[in-house]
Amino acid sequence: MREIEITVNGERRREAVEDRRLLLDFIREDLCLTGTHAGCEHGACGACTVLLDGQAVRSCLMFAAQADGSELTTIEGVGSYPDRLHPVQEGFWEEHGLQCGYCTPGMIMASIDLLAENPSPSDEEIRERLAGNICRCTGYVNIVRAVHHAAAAGREDQS
């Protein structure tokens, strides 16, 4: 066991973890932020995507101890209903970009990461960027629309 200090959604946390504890399990079970999901635990589905120091990473492929001193953003820190929804969350709601919702937090994190880099992505860019996030429900059609929706909202905010 070791102590780690980590800023989670803006809040400083100090926790004891076993060396082998996956960041994913740490987030879900120790921090009780269960919005980050496990879909494969081998890096292939993107359900566990979080932002670590602002970058999208797969929390199933890191140990919690490695995040010591970092800043972590999970879906819970992105925005919340009713009046603090993030444009990407709004987009997913408006465009029916989710069904069971299991892939959704990871999808939203990956979409935020995309829009931070490319505020006006094309269909193709969205699809490429989200290719590593598997959704079994939606067929992605409305996810692409959701990201466009968010991008448009972002552009409106700019102007």
Binding site: Q55, A56, R58, R129, G132
Partner: peptide, 9 residues
């Protein structure tokens, strides 16, 4: 190589 989130790490 993989996806952006893989390449980030």
């Amino acid at each position: 190589v993989g996806y952006v989130s893989i390449r980030n790490r």
